[in-house]
Write a protein that binds this DNA or RNA. Structure first.
Lengths: 111, 111
DNA sequence: TTATTATATAACTTGACAGTTATATAACTC
DNA sequence: GAGTTATATAACTGTCAAGTTATATAATAA
């Protein structure tokens, strides 16, 4: 089983995703656009299929690959606690700054 | 240069991040918690340092590693257009359903 | 049917990286 | 100082995955 992380670690696969995000592409188009060999494209597309990031529509000999972004929600979910972590830190900083500000404007401040 | 994707592809490194997200950990604690060898922990921590995901605070012989989540914002940024893609599809589906609904309740509907 | 077009797969090569063992560094304790 | 504790690094091994070349499959066109 391949994780979403493994699927995304390869830069060529990320380029493929960027491409088909615009519109479905057939294999030949991907090969031309990314200047890679045809077997390599097929191989990468297989990995992307396996994790459900692309789906295929057959049309004669051609195969149109299109993006299926839903599996990326798993990555979103993974990120969530880290986003919270950042926000937490930011909130604490804000509180600290407010406290300093309050201190500077105390009523008994004689400056 | 290591990308954020490369840093995150290794499950052990993700475990380390999950750990130190709770609170800073020293190397020995990570070794114990994840049941990995000490050199391996050091090696992974090095990678995480290189991409800026952890920072270190020295305390005698100990080194406290803490999370620095900011680099993950790069991943967020990468995800953005894909999130938009999903939303777009959802919106179109909604519009379609509304249209079907309107069709079913046309004034000249004789059902 | 034969030739052609489009894609997938098999077999192989190579490089990179996870993990190991052994050793270095460096600070503390006695 | 000598020994101990905590971590980093060097050198090595094995595995796995990216990329290549050659070939298979399968639909179309002639």
């Amino acid at each position: 089983m391949t994780t979403i992380f493994e699927a995304l670690v390869d830069p060529t696969r990320r380029q493929i995703l960027d491409l088909i995000r615009q519109r479905p592409h057939m294999v030949g188009e991907i090969v031309d656009a990314l200047q890679i060999s045809q077997p390599l494209a097929s191989k990468h597309l297989r990995v992307l299929r396996e994790v459900g990031l692309v789906s295929v529509r057959q049309d004669a000999q051609r195969r149109w690959y299109e993006l299926n972004a839903e599996p990326l929600l798993e990555l979103e979910a993974w990120l969530k606690p880290y986003r919270d972590f950042i926000e937490d830190r930011y909130d604490r900083l804000e509180t600290l700054l407010e406290r300093i500000d309050a201190e500077e404007n105390k009523p008994d401040d004689k400056t």
